[in-house]
Amino acid sequence: MAAATDDAGDSNEMIRVVSSDGEHFEMPEAAANLSLVLRHMIEDDCADAAGIPLAVVAAKPLAKIVDYCTKHAAKSSGLTIEEAEELKRFDAEFIEVDTDMLYDLLVAADFMGVEGLSKLAVQRTADLIKGKTPEQNRETFGIVNDFTPEEEEEICKENEWAFQITKPPSRLC
């Protein structure tokens, strides 16, 4: 964490945040500023030693978000091509998570207003969806098919054109 503080430049102050399950985290102010919610709290002098409580973000995703923000704040301005490439590699590796963590990151990044992370998680989720049949997507994301057989038949018929090229081996839906 100390190295990250040095990298972050002007702001050396550490901001404390508390997860919904009571775990404390610290990050440089520049990193916290990447979250719209945290930035407003800091501007309103709500960042004290007790830490800013994040009621809907659990420790596991919060640890990831602190990592993401710290890395991105440290590399926020005047990037060389190599640094930009490195940051891209960091993002690609960072978002290689299971679907439960991806879900937590989507919700938490949206709640905390971390734009870059939101985009990253949204794109990753969209990439997981595309190229799959509805049944494969239900499996990937643990979704229960709540259509009645009649509804399912109707919607499959309506969207039949979407499957004309892929032609999955078994039934479409």
Partner: peptide
């Protein structure tokens, strides 16, 4: 997922995958 977040995800899909997605669940 909250509707707004789900909509943002689905907005990134090409029409074909969007149509397939609408068959996943209600």
């Amino acid at each position: 997922l909250p509707d707004d977040v789900l909509a943002e995800v689905l907005r990134h899909l090409a029409p074909r995958w969007l149509a397939a997605s609408s068959s996943v669940c209600k």
